[in-house]
Nucleic acid binder design. Sequence first.
DNA 1: ACACGAGTGTAGCCAAGGCTACATTTCACG
DNA 2: CGTGAAATGTAGCCTTGGCTACACTCGTGT
Lengths: 158, 158
Amino acid sequence: MIGQDPAPELPVAAHADRGRPALPAPRPDRHERARHAQAQALLEDYTELIDDLIAATGEARITDIAAHLGVTHPTATKAVARLRREGLAQSRPYRGVFLTDSGQRMAARARARHRTVVDVLVALGVPVEAAESDAEGIEHHVSDSTLAAFARFLDRRG
Amino acid sequence: MIGQDPAPELPVAAHADRGRPALPAPRPDRHERARHAQAQALLEDYTELIDDLIAATGEARITDIAAHLGVTHPTATKAVARLRREGLAQSRPYRGVFLTDSGQRMAARARARHRTVVDVLVALGVPVEAAESDAEGIEHHVSDSTLAAFARFLDRRG
DNA sequence: ACACGAGTGTAGCCAAGGCTACATTTCACG
DNA sequence: CGTGAAATGTAGCCTTGGCTACACTCGTGT
Ligand SMILES: [Mn+2]
Ligand SMILES: [Mn+2]
Ligand SMILES: [Mn+2]
Ligand SMILES: [Mn+2]
């Protein structure tokens, strides 16, 4: 037994109404979707950045990738290994990183979605700096359905 | 110019223009902020849910928490241990979980922000189901500045 | 030519957040 | 009361994504 002293602080759950529906309803699926989206986030950011770097400078070096993402180079190396494992990138030692077709498609979608999210935020009155910053996290949780609604909204309001 | 051999697949980064500014500019801070927000996400979801459970049923049991979040009970137990470590919750074995003042403040802010995010999405034309689902991830990346803009937007369009 | 510094690779550590399997405690009910 | 099923705790495993420290390569500049 635990010890039910003249209670110093900590309350004890009342085991009150145990057989009731608890809350409106458990929605574990929503949290599961959010966790899945988060697992994709890293891949999306890397592919988008690698594509940007190649477009801007002709190459994507580990050091540059790391610098842009604010991580150390071994972290970037490990992430690139995961990109390769998932068939999104190719690379050879000391030779830079390249995207596969699949990786380029992911990059293209990520970039478009990123831009749409920023545009929507700005249209709603969010300061540009905050919009750019928040979008970096928000984008990964915007479903196709939501993205479509965003596009319609931007279109509608010119 | 890139590697101009009879290319057997893998290209080689050209070490072309090394002394250039690479991209518009590295913005590692944005990704760092997104990572920090993500680290807070779990705490926010747990405090919000615990507060909901207590409000609805008078108690927050590990099993119910786990069920609502779609994880197994040892996972929830571990998370509650972290909540305790961070001063957000209190608990005793077999006795349910309670929020500290700090935890309740986090829960209140999380709930309000969650609602605002859903409302904005719906106002933009996102189907309610998608809005609820996406909001579960998006909410954690909405800064105070963005939240304020959201509130103004909802207010304005009454 | 070649040396040296910048870039990259690799080893190994850590914490978070999942999981399964098993031990223990409660409490509702016969 | 006593007891067994449900709830909870605990141990230990895994992967991801950070990090530091150190080893190795490359190519630039003298
Ligand atoms: Mn991002
Ligand atoms: Mn992005
Ligand atoms: Mn959430
Ligand atoms: Mn929420």
